[in-house]
Design a protein around this nucleic acid. Structure first.
Length: 272
DNA sequence: CGCCAGGACGCCC
DNA sequence: GGGCGTCATGGC
């Protein structure tokens, strides 16, 4: 990844990166596409840091109106720009199905998101579809001036006062999650470095956090790349393409591979 | 109208 | 331990 400072913007040149594939593949829910005629542009937030980012016609990425310090301290990490995805994809491509998935969408990167935001977002995600998940999170942030509420703020609420979210049966889960994190019973930072089985167990103590949501928090919010969320789509992939199990040699990066497969099975296979 | 969505819970056996 | 009905909401 190379970058230059130009005016108030940062121009980034990097392979293995696509805005649509990375920001609209179901790992994050707060990015909005606001295309102009010439630029693919997304506006969104990582916890409470806002960003507008575009892809220029020359294949560069424009990080609009941010300081070099913010770029280096926040966004390089968020977009995982220090990880070599070419090397990852080379490894993935030894597997026939993953090879196809990487060819279909080679610009997916695993975002390094905030664990608290992920916890809340993926509780909302259960038995839900992506457009509605986004709507609920929008209403939540709108209620806090466009910022994602911290655990202390959200712990002031209860299932009834959260009715405005229209999150249905998930409201009582949000209440429990906020109270646990807010009062320190659940320490997400500590959980993030636990051996993964212990981390899973701790996360599942939160109401509304089962196997799938726990894996999503580990993968997307704690960058535990060995975590492997299995939803209905990935179940399909495993059944159709991996009847004998997922390759063992990929287990360390199974979660990243999972992102390519998720996107491929949802948007790629039927186009063939 | 029924079916589904990046599932988890409670209860049953 | 596995199987199944239920849980809100909204798009199709």
């Amino acid at each position: 990844m190379d970058y230059t400072v130009k005016g108030g913007d940062i121009l980034v040149s990097t392979p293995d990166f696509d805005l649509d594939e990375t920001l609209d593949c179901g790992q994050a829910f707060r990015w909005k596409k606001i295309d102009s005629d010439y630029l693919c542009t997304y506006q969104g937030s990582f916890y409470n840091d806002e960003l507008t980012v575009s892809k220029s016609g020359e294949g560069e990425f424009i990080f609009h109106n941010i300081s070099e310090e913010d770029f280096l301290s926040k966004w390089v990490d968020y977009f995982d720009f220090n990880t070599d995805y070419s090397e990852l994809k080379r490894m993935f491509s030894e597997d026939a199905t993953l090879s196809e998935a990487c060819k279909f969408a080679g610009g997916i990167r695993l975002l390094r998101q905030n664990s608290w935001e992920c916890l809340i977002s993926f509780i909302i995600s259960q038995n839900n579809n992506i457009p509605r998940i986004k709507g609920i999170i929008d209403r939540l942030c709108d209620n806090y001036g466009g910022m994602f509420p911290d655990a202390e703020q959200l712990s002031q609420e209860n299932a009834d006062s959260l009715a405005y979210l229209r999150s249905g049966f998930r409201a009582k889960y949000l209440e429990d999650a906020a109270k646990r994190v807010g009062n320190g019973i659940t320490d997400l930072s500590a959980i993030s470095t636990l051996p993964i089985e212990e981390a899973r167990r701790e996360l599942k103590l939160i109401k509304g956090v089962g196997p799938k949501v726990a894996e999503c928090i580990l993968l997307f919010g704690m960058h535990r790349t060995e975590a492997f969320p299995i939803d209905v789509w990935i179940k399909r992939v495993l059944g159709e393409y991996y009847p004998n199990g997922f390759p063992e040699y990929l287990s360390e990066n199974a979660g990243i591979a999972q992102q390519y497969l998720f996107h491929y099975i949802r948007h790629g296979v039927e186009k063939k």
